[in-house]
Amino acid sequence: MTEEEPKVRIKSLYKIFGDTPKVALSHVQAGMSKSELLEQKGHVLGLRDINLDIPGRKIQVIMGLSGSGKSTLIRHLNRLIEPTSGEIWVDGEDVLAMNDKALRDLRRFRMSMVFQKFGLLPHRTVQENVEYGLGIQDVDQGEAAERAKKWIDRVGLAGFEGHYPGQLSGGMQQRVGLARALATDAEILLMDEAFSALDPLIRTDMQTILLELQEELHKTIIFITHDLDEALRIGDRIAILRDGEIIQASDPQDILMNPADAYITDFIKDVNRAKVVRMRSIMGPAAPAQGAPVAVSDTIEEALQKLHAAPDGCCPVMAGDEIRGTVGIDAAIQALKAPAAAGAHYS
């Protein structure tokens, strides 16, 4: 794969909340910690030195617990929040240099957003809500209605066009939110804890819908969540945020196999690894194997049967028709155990 220009690039981004953020910034850059800053200067450190390249047409998950700054971070991308210092580039364009008009165009045509509490307009019907972004784009009414209808069907809400958001369940409301964001045809989709307010079953449903849509749409999705299972399920890449700092940004398998520090180790220790660790993370170099072939993207759970049935406990790992390596049942069982906490315990 060639190294291509990232769709969105965040460079040394800082956000400090308080009366004199610029002054506080110099303290932070001199190494003051978040708690010291709050205690001594009365300022809240929102984000500290965020550097992140977000590839196009992939799902980038940004994960962290509440207060880690993840919602603050996503709001910088369309400048709902202004940074204290740093750079944000979208398609090689400097977002912070944009004037009001350019910024509004960015929001109208290139980035749309889905919200945790849906943010639907309660006085408009489902149809009118989905048309909202198109109205702001000045798309004419007839075409807007048609495009909105298409997306309403696509998220499975056909027949509910005339309902008001207040008449729908949470899951259905968020489908409206998703349809509204998709209808603008923006290439970048910002999803701020979009599924966090939903029941677990509905949440899994919505993840499935999102993954299905992504398979054909290939949007650049930036997805905020506090739920590791969700992050592992949908993320092509995951960045883990803690106290306003990114502590690891990598692909999900790498985070599972090589957690950067004790915090992440602790974070991933309760994950059901059988369902998330894939063959490509645990396979060794190609070697003779007597078992049935497994796919690189198979999880341990999916492959275990074949591994168990193999006379020598080894299976070839295939990507399509090509052999990529070999995996043994011992490696699979080993991988089920979470890596031990490395080094000193985090504070």
């Binding site: 109208r108 919200f115 639907l120 307009l121 909202y132 972004g133 603008t184």
Partner: peptide
Amino acid sequence: EAAEAFGA
């Protein structure tokens, strides 16, 4: 915020 995010 939603209206803002859609560029209203």
